[in-house]
Simulated scan of single mutants.
Amino acid sequence: MNSFERMTPEQVAQLALAITATAEVLGQSLTADAAEMMADDLADHPASTIAGALKSCRRELNGKLTLAAILQRVQAADGRPGKDEAWAIAMTTNDEFETIVLTDEIHLALAAAKPVLDAGDKVGARMAFISAYERFVGQAREEAKPVNWHVSIGFDSNRRIQAVTRAVQMQRIPRERGMLYLTDLAHEAVTEDGRAIAGLLTGTPCQPSDKVRTKLEAIRADLDLKRKEKAAAREAERCRVIAALNLRKTTLISQAAAIQSKEAARGR
């Protein structure tokens, strides 16, 4: 659902006048009916965004003013990152200690590409991600949905503050929401055990308590076991696929040989 309220009839009429005036600036005569139809098609977008798009059209267009030209500029101003930046953001989600600020479309596209990524095919995963991302972005823009950035909190408290601060500076999350995040993070107590856990990644040595050290060793052993199990599962799956392909190849060869034998028998 579009979180922007659709323009009122009066606003649509004003927009039609603005479209007509923009067309005249570009040396184009636009009928009132055509301007009203274009205004109605744009009425689901914020008025300020459309005004900026019309201004860009007046500055940049050399030909006729079209609905596509206006929409292109409206959509470019919606704050969604391009496919390459979106992929780079998606890749940072591999680090569970990293705090990530991402859009709904990045999250959905990453979910679509994850099976390929888990199989170890990073090139294929990127292609799958970009295809899904462009599809989700296209759907969102077709429905005039505003971009929705949300924060995925990682384990490293220092990185949380940096990520949220950067997101506020880039205007990806509202300043008020960012301040709430930062206020919550500022009140988190950092214990010696917490510093020790963070030190596993930062390289800053700090001795945890015996209880936490035991837990860390258990976690490390469990992670090693799971890593080995995943590797074994991937190898088993690879062998299964190769065996299936070889069987299919053998079957096709047998079928081809049988067809050739029948054709040879008919020719005698």
Rank of each mutant, 00 (worst) to 15 (best):
E229G: 03
E217Y: 06
L200K: 03
I89Y: 02
V212Y: 10
R126P: 03
D210Q: 11
R220G: 03
V137G: 09
A198K: 09
K230F: 00
I259H: 08
D40L: 12
A90L: 01
I242K: 14
A51L: 07
I173F: 00
A221D: 07
P81Q: 01
Q169L: 13
T250A: 15
T214A: 15
G79A: 02
L182D: 05
L30P: 01
A43T: 04
V137Y: 09
I259N: 02
G82K: 01
L247I: 02
W87T: 00
V164E: 00
G199H: 08
A112Y: 03
K230G: 02
L223F: 06
Q260I: 13
N2P: 09
W149L: 13
T183S: 15
L61W: 00
D33Q: 15
R234F: 11
A113W: 08
N246V: 04
R6M: 06
R58V: 05
R195Q: 02
K122F: 04
A186I: 10
H45P: 02
E105C: 08
Q28L: 09
A23P: 11
R80P: 04
R266T: 01
Q72P: 03
G82N: 05
P81C: 04
R58I: 08
Y181P: 05
A257W: 06
V190A: 07
K226L: 07
G267Q: 14
D193V: 12
Q169C: 01
D95A: 08
L65S: 11
A68V: 15
S261C: 08
I253N: 03
T8G: 01
V168S: 00
A132E: 06
M170Q: 12
I19N: 07
E36A: 13
E229M: 13
R234D: 14
F136K: 06
L117C: 03
A236Q: 10
E24D: 07
L17H: 08
I242A: 14
K64H: 06
M37T: 07
L247F: 05
F155L: 00
I106N: 00
R177G: 00
L180E: 05
G199Q: 07
D33Y: 10
A221F: 09
Q72T: 10
A258V: 05
A265P: 07
Q14F: 10
S29L: 15
A86W: 00
I89D: 02
P208T: 07
M1E: 06
A236G: 02
R6C: 07
Q171M: 05
A34H: 08
C57N: 00
A76F: 07
G120F: 05
H187S: 14
I70P: 11
A196W: 10
N246L: 12
